[in-house]
Design a binder for these strands. Structure first.
Lengths: 144, 144
DNA sequence: GTAATCCTTCCCATCATTGGAAGGTCAAGC
DNA sequence: GCTTGACCTTCCAATGATGGGAAGGATTAC
């Protein structure tokens, strides 16, 4: 099958398939006389694997490792788990930060709701930390 | 003060300050005879505003709107809330997806933990949806 | 006066993905 | 046959936000 069909079958766009091939995430596809790339069951299978991994938020480099483990029949589950755990920690950290941002925003929106005109804390909070020397300013040799 | 000091005072890197100016997020800074950019209290204030908004995950375009509202003394709290709420919804959606991914990954890691060699579900799940004709592959003439 | 540190502009890289242009190929209808 | 249009090819560029670095001028501490 050609790249368009492989794309439809795997859920990875043709653009992305070519890109993945170019960065050597995927082996170079076979070619027909016309120059068209030719894909088989196995290829679609691998593409689907990549698609699922991307959906789970794995980076290309992580997927590269996972693919190697997948292909390598001698891989150990421990190796796979290690990659997954690392990624899990990253995602949990990301979730933590996101939750904090959401909390702050909710608070601000809530206060703004009840506040009167021109006292919206979203604006005030963002802008009015004036006394802020804020950052560890290395004095530079005087100036200002 | 020059750009380095403004950067330290606001928490926005000099690189970013120049970038923000180039995309017209910030007004062009005044220049000294030397060509150096010159910043004052007001500028640092605005930079801090941007910094805080970025920390809350607002996009540059959203910050552009917020800055306009901030500058505009006639702005209404409702406008500000609208932007904040939109952003909040986006973040909550993002958090939802992230939580789902984390849940899936945790399950996979957990199963892998107890599973025996070469039966790691992380690999199996990702790859073994083999019976997959997977997608409705109509003979030809289809888009991805 | 000199050396160190700042500043300036400009270009490049990232990460994953999409868009488009220019041109070749395939499968169908007439 | 020939046309049509969907498909494929490669290459180049852009996105968003940021960082890295080069080349050269300005400022400042000593």
């Amino acid at each position: 099958m050609n790249i368009g069909e492989a794309a439809a079958a795997s859920g990875v766009s043709a653009k992305m398939i070519r890109y993945y091939e170019s960065i050597l995430l995927l082996p170079a596809a076979g070619r027909r006389d016309s120059g068209y790339r030719d894909y088989g069951e196995e290829d679609v299978h691998r593409l689907s694997f990549v698609r699922r991994a991307r959906d789970l938020g794995f980076s290309i480099e992580q997927i590269r490792s996972l693919l190697a483990l997948w292909t390598d029949t001698g891989r150990s589950n421990a190796d796979v788990r290690a990659i997954a755990r690392t990624h899990l920690r990253e995602m949990e950290e990301q979730a933590r930060k996101l939750a904090a941002m959401i909390g702050t925003l909710k608070t601000l929106i809530g206060s703004c709701e009840t506040g009167k005109r021109s006292a919206c804390p979203i604006i005030e909070e963002l802008g009015d930390h004036r006394p802020a020397p804020a950052a560890p300013v290395k004095p530079r040799r005087r100036a200002a």
